[in-house]
Design a protein around this nucleic acid. Structure first.
Length: 681
DNA sequence: TGTAACTCCCCTCCG
DNA sequence: GGGAGTTACA
């Protein structure tokens, strides 16, 4: 359908490209490294490159486009499709994890991987570490063995950065160093248990994929590999890429070291900086003209980056000529409620003046920073979608549902049994263990036997047990015509039959069951149960149903997003809220210089999302004061990265409410007075 | 012995 | 607000 765009209006991939973009698009087969500043037409360039390759006769099934979100891949292929008559449907596009998953299902047998494996999300992985931690007797009283979440973090760091455990402990988890032996044991047990359960975690997908491209002797699967956001790849991902195209022929990567914001996931812009050395014949192209923002916005971005360390010199210059472009606004609000109201008011103002809601975005450092705003938006009936933050998969009831589905997929999945059986009133870890022993896992027929014969649970759990058996029975027994149920129908059956279990567990069961209802739609588009489970693990939909409700397709809605999830996005009007020191930079990142620098780049990413107007706001006062680790930072004061550059903003200072007593001002009255006084001195 | 109830503590970013 | 750890009860 997109191909029609070119009919009668001969649009080709060359249309509207500037010299540098054209150079990148037409550069030889590769290796090509494109260093693309913010707003320099990176997406357009990648899309045009794909279109050009297709027009030159490349086989779409042998083109791979790796991005950081499924959304980005979709958008790029959509745009490529509009630039050529060749169909883009068969081009491979997606995240490293999604593509890795797909390839491992197809070729994993070459590595001896089981045909069907399930994927552990971060929560499952930490549950497994919790079990191991207890089994090995490391959770005993009075002992300060790392928490299961910490174990996952350490493990993931070791794997993703490919650093020895001792080094990781020393540099990043010094308080765990004396437990190194125990940690080593848990890691060994973790590997064993994953193999027994036929599960892979997120890191395994990359590890096995790398093994697939480096150790096995499969012929090259792709002729062209294009990678977006290359500055945010880690060692493992860079190895995968290099393995896909060993001599770099066909490789095209795009990145911006000033936008490297995934250090916590072991990403390193060293991959990008070192690219020309790894691939000596690299053609280097720089995209430097900013087409996105007006100059006053770029002035702020440049100021933020000017103080950065270890970044190539960059000075963003606006191509757009807007003589009356306003300066960005810095809003100092009395408290979080005022901030939410301020943002709502301005959003609605802009809409009145013709800027659709979907051309506006509100960005923040962490998922819960939007809580106040979400309530205010819901109160005023302003529809919104939120990216980032809590994912549906991380909520208890959805994990329950997924556990049901995982058992239907793989009846030997012990972790899923744990979760499902724990729904029964009166059943705890001990009963679960008994049931699992009774079921004699692994056994493909275990679920059938459970439905037919029950299981040893305490007497008072009997009624609940019957509900559970009935639920599985409803999923196993095809309705009437013998056609097996699809994933959506299974969810429906679980939601309805197991409703009593959810109702006794969750006081707000009605809302949660409605969430499950919503998931039926997602499942319906996934095709198979296995595909749905992979989708929901690798590309979890964000949770929106609780307040404003999921916007209807084609509806106009405001975008709420963490800064991380906003990467690659752009909007006419951008609000950055909670821009206080301690939030941006986050107080958790202050201990190291590299952490601090990453926070600076994060702010840079946020600022450069704005086309026309930028608002940076922060509340003077938090009623629930964020914790303060030391005196090096305060809340209620604007980010240290912006403090010296206040003159680049219009100032909006809200009067303090009468109820605000001097002693209550976060950060101390003197500092606040000084920051206010700085406005007119 | 195992579960429920209670208390305390800590809270990032993502696939 | 939720998870981990501890105590009280069946």
């Amino acid at each position: 359908m997109f191909a029609t765009a070119s009919v009668g209006n001969e649009r080709s991939w060359r249309t509207g490209l500037d010299a540098a973009q054209l150079e990148a698009v037409t550069a030889g087969p590769g290796p090509v490294l494109v260093i693309a500043g913010a707003g320099s037409g990176k997406t357009k360039t990648l899309a045009a490159r794909v279109a050009r390759l297709l027009e030159d006769g490349a086989d779409p099934d042998r083109i791979l486009l790796l991005t950081f979100s499924r959304r980005a891949a979709k958008e790029m292929l959509h745009r490529a499709g509009a630039l050529t008559r060749v169909r883009t449907a068969r081009v491979w596009g997606g995240t490293f994890h999604a593509i890795g998953n797909r390839l491992l299902r197809e070729y994993g047998h070459a590595l001896g991987l089981p045909a069907s494996f399930t994927i552990l999300d971060a929560g499952d992985a930490s549950d497994l570490f919790g079990v191991i931690r207890t089994d090995l007797g490391l959770a005993e009283r009075g002992r300060r063995f790392p928490r299961k979440e910490t174990l996952v973090d350490i493990y993931s760091r070791v794997v993703n950065a490919q650093e020895p455990l001792a080094q990781v402990l020393k540099e990043r988890f010094p308080w765990c160093e004396q437990e190194a032996d125990g940690i080593r044991d848990t890691f060994a047990a973790y590997l064993e248990r994953k193999a027994e359960l036929s599960v892979l975690d997120y890191d395994d997908i990359l590890l096995y994929w790398r093994a697939l491209v480096t150790d096995s002797h499969l012929d090259a699967r792709f002729d062209h590999v294009l990678v977006d956001e290359y500055q945010d790849t880690n060692v493992l991902q860079a190895d995968v890429v290099a393995g896909l195209v060993p001599d770099g022929r066909g490789l095209f990567v795009v990145g911006d070291d000033a936008q490297a914001i995934y250090g916590f996931r072991a990403a390193s812009s060293a991959n990008m900086i070192g690219f020309p050395e790894r691939f000596p014949s690299t053609a280097l192209v720089r995209l430097e003209r900013n087409y996105r923002s007006v100059q006053p916005v770029l002035d702020v971005a440049n100021a933020v980056l000017a103080d950065a360390k270890g970044i190539f010199d960059k000075e963003l210059r606006a191509v757009r000529v807007e003589h009356h472009a306003a300066r960005p606004t810095m809003g100092q609000l009395a408290d979080e409620s005022s901030e939410a109201q301020f943002v709502c008011d301005r959003v609605l103002d802009h809409r009145e003046r013709g800027v659709a809601l979907r051309d506006q975005a509100v960005l923040f450092r962490t998922g819960h920073h939007s809580a106040r705003l979400e309530i205010e938006l819901a109160r005023r009936n302003v529809p919104f979608v939120k990216y980032g933050g809590l994912k549906v998969l991380e909520t208890a009831h959805v994990k329950d549902l997924v556990a049901f589905l995982r058992l239907l997929e793989n009846p030997s999945d012990e972790l899923a049994w744990h979760r499902v059986l724990a729904l029964l009133d009166g059943v705890g870890p001990a009963s679960v263990r008994r049931v699992i022993e009774h079921l004699a896992l692994p056994d493909a027929a275990a679920l059938r036997r459970f439905v037919d014969g029950g299981a040893p649970v305490p007497k008072r759990s009997g009624a609940d047990l019957d509900v559970l058996r009935a639920t599985f029975a409803a999923c196993l027994a095809p309705a009437g015509d013998g056609e097996p149920l699809g994933p959506a129908q299974e969810i429906e059956a679980i939601r309805i039959t197991a409703a009593p279990l959810f109702e006794q567990r969750y006081p707000d069961a009605a809302v949660r069951l409605e969430d499950l209802h919503q998931l039926e739609g997602v499942a319906a588009s996934s095709g198979s149960r296995a595909a749905f489970l992979a989708d929901v693990t690798l590309d979890p939909p964000t949770l929106t149903s609780d307040l404003a409700g999921p916007p209807l397709l084609d509806d106009d809605y405001l975008i709420l997003s963490t800064i991380h999830s906003a990467k690659g996005g752009e909007w006419d009007v951008v609000f950055l809220i909670h821009a206080s020191d301690g939030n941006v930079p986050s107080d958790m990142s202050l201990s190291t210089q590299e952490g601090l620098e990453e926070e600076r780049r994060l702010l840079y990413v946020a600022v450069t999302r704005a086309r026309d107007e930028l608002y940076v706001t922060y509340p003077l006062r938090y009623y629930h004061r964020p914790r303060q680790l030391d005196d090096a930072h305060t809340y209620g004061q604007v980010s240290r990265f912006l403090q010296p550059h206040r003159s680049l903003f219009e100032q909006h200072v809200e009067a303090q409410p009468d109820s605000l007593r001097r002693s209550e001002i976060t950060g101390g009255p003197d500092r606040v007075r000084a920051s206010v006084a700085a406005l007119w001195s």
